[in-house]
């Protein structure tokens, strides 16, 4: 999963402190693996270096100074591209796909479209596997079958998610 794209996506709804970013991330995506502060700051400095974010301001309070980050136009384009690009169909895609769907919903993009594109990508691979199966020997067939069933499971998850988009978008916006 790309933490950079996720943080960028979170910034798209408005400038935030690094600490805020971590909290928002953990709240939505990090149930099992909260982000380390270090991870946030190293990612942010990489994004800053690439010009995808900029420092919007620095706050001086009682504690350490806190930078407030804002997304640049280049950053928005980057998020856009990332969301539109289907993931390579492989096992355990659900967390990145979930993140993408949530970010799409958060940023007012068409999550259904995203899922459709992903499904097309899955099907393309399934077609290839099916084709390989038809021409291959029994061991090829068995291996392909395994992959096909896993892909099918993902696809069904995609279908279900698509069917629940309305529900999800309500939950995300609340």
């Amino acid at each position: 999963m790309s933490i950079g794209h996720t943080l960028l996506g979170l910034l798209e709804s408005g400038p935030r402190h690094g600490y805020d970013l971590k909290r928002a991330f953990d709240e939505r995506f990090g149930h099992d693996r909260p982000l380390h502060y270090g991870q946030v700051y190293s990612t942010m400095s990489r994004l800053l270096k690439n010009g995808l974010v900029e420092v919007d301001g620095i706050e001086h309070g009682g504690g350490p100074e806190r930078k407030r980050y804002a997304i640049t136009d280049a950053g928005i384009t980057d998020v856009e591209q990332w969301l539109a690009q289907p993931e390579k169909p492989e096992p355990y895609l659900q967390s990145v796909l979930y993140t993408k769907v949530v970010l799409a919903l958060l940023t007012g993009r068409d999550a259904g479209d995203l899922l459709d594109v992903q499904r097309a990508e899955h099907l393309r691979l399934m077609r290839d596997l099916t084709q390989r199966k038809r021409t291959g020997d029994l061991s090829d067939q068995l291996i392909c079958d395994h992959a096909l069933f896993h892909l099918e499971a993902d696809l069904r998850w995609l279908e279900l998610t698509a069917a629940r988009l309305g529900q999800l978008s309500k939950a995300v916006r609340s």
Binding site: G112, D116, R119, A120, H122, L123, M126, R127, L129, T130, L148, F149, L151, E152, L155, R156
Partner: peptide
């Protein structure tokens, strides 16, 4: 069914 659809050349989604 996706595995059946995998025998196609392309797919059309009705929603």
């Amino acid at each position: 069914e996706a595995r059946v659809a995998a025998y196609s050349d392309r797919e059309v989604v009705v929603r």
